[in-house]
Design a protein around this nucleic acid. Structure first.
Length: 565
DNA sequence: GAGGAGGAAGTAG
DNA sequence: CTACTTCCTCCTC
């Protein structure tokens, strides 16, 4: 019994991943996905506490406290190690008619009123009104509304890996039943999710957050999950689930008055606050604390990356492949794809070898759209996982590009001073996720062939070499190198820039604005435009890096030898 | 008007 | 010092 319960819990929690990704239609930066799988016997404190909340919120029996029963209230505080869970209620979490914030994020006050949101009988409402105001009503604390993620938003694990992973993160996904009865006609956004988003989101352009129309709050479209720390968990108790549980009890026990007595008793008990020195979670921390919250971003990434690395290490050992996706051979790519499909219980792909003939380096350059085109059901998940692997590898301090065979579609350039993907890329403001995709796909892709070439023929490419292939975010990249990057990744940058005569090094900038913006972002020059970029290009005339084309054409430039190699 | 060419001064590593 | 960046004027298409 106890084992079975615990197994069920593990199933709930696993895979427990931390995902943050911008919705595809959002103007937010390109997706940044990090995942993490919790291991049953290595639960962190946060996970343990979260488990407890699951038990408490669902009214189910906790594995270590068989005597725990939904009622009476005293039973909620068994003398076992989980006993403190019943204390994890903050009275301020309760709704109150006065002081409900209604302005920010289009907060929908009626939805957070327990009686309304839970479709309780009218007499219950009347009863509530007639009863003396409970203690919490005068607490003056900010209200933390319950999570409001309707099922329909996360339809199935396959429909969107982000959504599914988000849903699989126990705190949201396992409370669906509780939220199904929410039928608010207007959008809402719970404060917990707001804080999560603030925690996770890179800085966004001012208008980017709410541009996208949505049946729910536009802001909530880009909800991100994150590893919750203990304070977050304590603010995350599902009152709705608890209330629903009590409703069920009321139905099964007709003699019991449906007056939420149990809940009230639970919530009036403040011993946990004293015991754990807890403070109510103020709404200001959600709304006004953006700057502070962002400060927590990097540790979260580090934590998630750490787990991603561990996960990747295990799979690398199992598959006998490099940790660097760029080093994979086609057969290793297939092995990784199959392993990932199995890991996520995705349908096995037929003709995998035919659909993915690339080696790892080429695979790493594929866009999510391309993955989804080849594997509609699982492409997005595979792409997301690959991004995680790339990030995990790029984050390794000693990660070195592994030399590999040259592949036909890839350019030899730029040489070894290529920047690796840097998390800073995701922190800058971004208004075009496609551009971020270009950067994410181009920047992190080392071209070790070039390093080999440069080493073999040191005079062939007059480029300074830097150690480790990392240049701290790409600010040291030369313009001609950057242009070669773009030219080498046509599948990513599309028609912004293209070769006219590859052998002569003649290329054309088709979208000058876009190229300039990409260049400006890479160099952290927000004011960059094509005028300036072209001036820099013209400086290359003197330096012998570029030259005017024989027949002058607009937006057409030519690399000099040996830069046109 | 957009883009090309180039001078000149400023900036950051 | 280098490699841009920024600003500018003039010219061409």
């Amino acid at each position: 019994m106890r084992k079975a319960t615990h197994t069920a819990l593990q199933q709930q929690l696993e895979p427990q991943r931390y995902i943050w990704k911008t919705a595809r239609h959002s103007p937010e930066p390109e997706e940044l996905l990090l995942s993490r799988q919790a291991e049953g016997n290595t639960h962190t404190r946060t996970e343990m506490e979260y488990e407890k909340m699951l038990y408490l919120a669902n009214g189910s029996e906790m594995p270590h406290s068989p005597q725990l029963k939904p009622q009476p209230f005293q039973a909620l505080t068994p003398p076992d190690q989980y006993s403190a869970y019943a204390d994890n209620f903050d009275l301020s979490l309760l709704p109150q008619d006065a002081g409900i914030p209604t302005t920010v994020y289009q907060y929908n006050a009626p939805q957070i009123k327990i009686e309304c949101a839970w479709d309780c009988p009218t007499d219950n409402q009347q009863q509530q009104q007639q009863q003396p105001a409970p203690a919490y009503a005068s607490s003056g604390h900010q209200l933390i509304p319950p999570p409001a993620y309707p099922h329909s938003v996360y339809p199935s694990p396959q429909s969107s890996p982000l959504q599914s992973e988000f849903a699989s993160f126990g705190g949201y996904g396992k409370f669906h039943g509780s939220y199904d009865c929410l039928s608010s006609p207007s959008p809402s956004l719970d404060a917990s999710s707001i804080k999560q988003e603030l925690h996770i989101l890179p800085p966004s352009p001012p208008e980017s957050n709410c541009e996208t129309p949505s049946p729910r709050s536009a802001c909530s479209e880009s909800i991100k999950a994150e590893p919750l720390d203990s304070s977050d968990i304590e603010s995350f108790i599902d009152l709705n689930a608890l209330l629903q549980q009590q409703q069920h009890q009321a139905q099964s026990l007709p003699d019991t008055k449906p007056d939420h007595q149990l809940l009230r008793e639970c919530l009036e008990d403040t011993t946990f606050q004293k015991k754990h020195n807890l403070r109510p979670l103020a709404l200001e921390s959600f709304i006004g604390g953006l700057a502070e919250v962002r400060g927590d971003f990097e540790p979260v990434i580090s934590l998630a990356l750490e787990h991603a690395k561990r996960e990747a290490d295990a799979i690398c050992m199992e598959l006998q492949i490099s940790q660097d996706p760029n080093a994979w051979t086609p057969s290793q790519v297939h092995a990784w794809l199959r392993s990932t499909l199995a890991q996520f219980k995705l349908p096995p792909a037929a003709n995998l070898e035919l659909k993915f003939s690339e080696d790892g380096a080429a695979l790493a350059l594929l866009s999510e759209e391309e993955f989804m085109r080849r594997l509609p059901e699982s492409g997005s998940t595979l792409h997301a996982q690959l991004e995680i692997w790339k990030m995990a590898y790029a984050d390794q301090p000693n990660s070195q590009p592994i030399q590999q065979q040259q592949q036909p579609g890839l350019d030899l350039w730029p040489p070894a001073s290529y920047p690796m993907l840097n998390l800073d890329d995701f922190n800058g403001d971004s208004e075009d996720e496609e551009e971020m995709e270009v950067e994410a796909a181009v920047a992190p892709t080392p071209t070790p062939i070039a390093a080999v070439t440069a080493a073999a023929t040191p005079t062939s490419t007059p480029v300074k070499r830097t150690s480790g292939g990392r240049t701290g975010g790409g600010s040291h990249i030369h313009l001609w190198q950057f242009l070669k990057e773009l030219l080498a990744s046509p599948q990513v940058n599309g028609t912004a820039i293209r070769w006219i005569d590859r052998t002569k090094g003649i290329f054309k900038i088709e979208d000058s604005v876009r190229v300039a913006k990409l260049w400006g972002r890479r160099k952290n020059r927000p004011a960059m435009n094509y005028d300036k970029l072209s001036r820099s290009i013209r400086q290359y005339y003197k330096k012998g890096i570029m030259k005017k084309t024989e027949r002058s054409q607009r937006l057409v430039y030519q690399f000099c030898h040996p830069y046109n190699q």
